[in-house]
Simulated scan of single mutants.
Amino acid sequence: MTSTPESPDHVSVHLTGCAEETAQAVIDALRTPFPQGAEVIPARPQATGGAGHPLVWCTVVDTRGRRRSTGIRVELREPVDAGLFGAADPVHQVIEELAAAFGVEERGTVPGEHELEVRLRLTPLPKG
């Protein structure tokens, strides 16, 4: 599933394999480093869940005005699969911020002419 961001500074984030509370925790973790208000929208299901129809939580992150996070770990109750879509530099900025809050395992990258698609697995960071 791909989505075209609104501008080169926007990154589309799609979260699957998790409950609404977990998706919201990931989106909330992106609000601090990327405070461009209107572009970070609340998690919303894009499709109804059910057998064979996974629930997808989506948001668009505007990377302009990035404030680097202070490395605050965010509690996850379960692992989350994340798809990031956008220009390479903004996508890498979002990955850096996710890595400050969660464990991040890259599951694949698909480069395009003007866009990059990255699949990640987000997991809770070890305590300590």
Rank of each mutant, 00 (worst) to 15 (best):
E75G: 09
E75D: 14
E75T: 06
L76T: 02
L76Y: 02
R77T: 11
R77M: 00
R77D: 12
E78A: 12
P79W: 00
P79M: 00
P79D: 14
P79Y: 01
V80K: 00
V80D: 01
V80A: 02
D81W: 03
G83I: 00
L84R: 01
L84Y: 02
L84C: 03
F85T: 01
F85Y: 09
G86T: 02
A87H: 08
A87P: 10
A87E: 09
A87V: 13
A88L: 10
D89T: 15
D89G: 11
D89Y: 06
D89E: 11
P90Q: 01
P90N: 02
P90L: 15
V91M: 02
H92T: 13
Q93Y: 00
Q93E: 06
V94W: 02
I95T: 04
I95R: 15
E96M: 00
E96D: 14
E97S: 09
E97G: 00
L98M: 07
L98Y: 07
L98D: 15
L98T: 04
A99E: 15
A99L: 02
A100S: 07
A100G: 05
A101V: 12
A101M: 04
A101N: 10
F102D: 14
F102Q: 11
F102N: 10
G103C: 06
V104G: 09
V104R: 04
V104N: 12
E106K: 10
E106H: 14
E106R: 09
R107F: 10
R107H: 08
R107A: 08
R107C: 07
G108D: 03
T109G: 01
V110L: 11
V110P: 00
V110A: 06
V110N: 06
P111W: 03
P111D: 09
P111S: 13
G112V: 06
G112Q: 12
E113G: 08
E115K: 09
L116E: 05
L116M: 12
L116R: 09
E117I: 10
E117S: 13
V118W: 13
V118K: 10
V118I: 12
V118Q: 13
R119Y: 13
R119H: 12
L120G: 11
L120P: 04
R121T: 15
R121V: 06
R121L: 10
L122P: 04
L122N: 03
L122T: 07
L122H: 13
L122I: 13
T123H: 15
T123Y: 14
P124M: 13
P124G: 15
P124D: 05
P126F: 09
P126G: 07
P126L: 05
P126S: 13
